[in-house]
């Protein structure tokens, strides 16, 4: 057994798991954070995308033990009690999620992109979503939503008092 202590969505949590446990299973089964999805379990579909130390990764390709002491953001950590994250809001407004299964991964990929590049072009958005598959909605509505969300976030930064 390995003991893993990570900061998830700002909260420090500990679990004791078998060494072969992936980060994905740790989040879903030990921490009940089921917003992170298992789609292919081999790093192709991106449904399990979470942000570790600021970078989007496939949580199915990391062992829980590798993440000990690190900072993990899952889809559950994006909204606050009274406010959707602007990306979530834009996805809702643009009806960008049909079945929704790929949504958490896509939204986190978008978050990581906008954090690094506040004004992404369509091509840059496509590149950032290259590791996320969607089978129902299609990507057009998502790309629209991500552009709008990026603009909202830029405006918010601009509106903040200096």
């Amino acid at each position: 057994m390995v003991t893993v202590t990570i900061k998830v969505n700002g909260e420090t949590r500990t679990a004791s798991v078998a060494p072969e446990t992936t980060l994905l299973r740790l989040l879903r089964e030990n921490f009940s954070l089921t917003g992170t999805k298992l789609g292919c379990d081999v790093g192709d579909c991106g449904a399990c995308t979470v942000i570790v130390d600021g970078k989007p990764v496939n949580s199915c390709l990391m062992l829980a033990g590798q993440v000990d002491g690190r900072d993990v953001l899952t889809i559950e950590g994006l909204a606050t009690i009274d406010r959707l994250h602007p990306i979530q809001k834009a996805f809702e407004d643009h009806a960008s999620l049909q079945c929704g299964f790929c949504g958490p991964g896509i939204i986190l990929s978008a978050k990581a992109l906008i954090d690094e590049n506040p004004a992404p072009t369509t091509q840059e958005i496509r590149d950032a979503l290259g590791g996320n598959l969607c089978r129902c909605t299609g990507y057009t509505k998502m790309i629209e939503a991500i552009r709008v969300a990026a603009r909202t976030l830029r405006d918010e930064v601009a509106d903040q008092p200096a």
Partner: peptide, 19 residues
């Protein structure tokens, strides 16, 4: 019209069977 299920999808709160 907004999708009624769109919000929970985006929040990662929709429960599929494996959840």
């Amino acid at each position: 019209a907004p999708r009624l299920d769109g919000r929970l999808h985006g929040l990662g709160q929709t429960k599929y069977i494996d959840d």
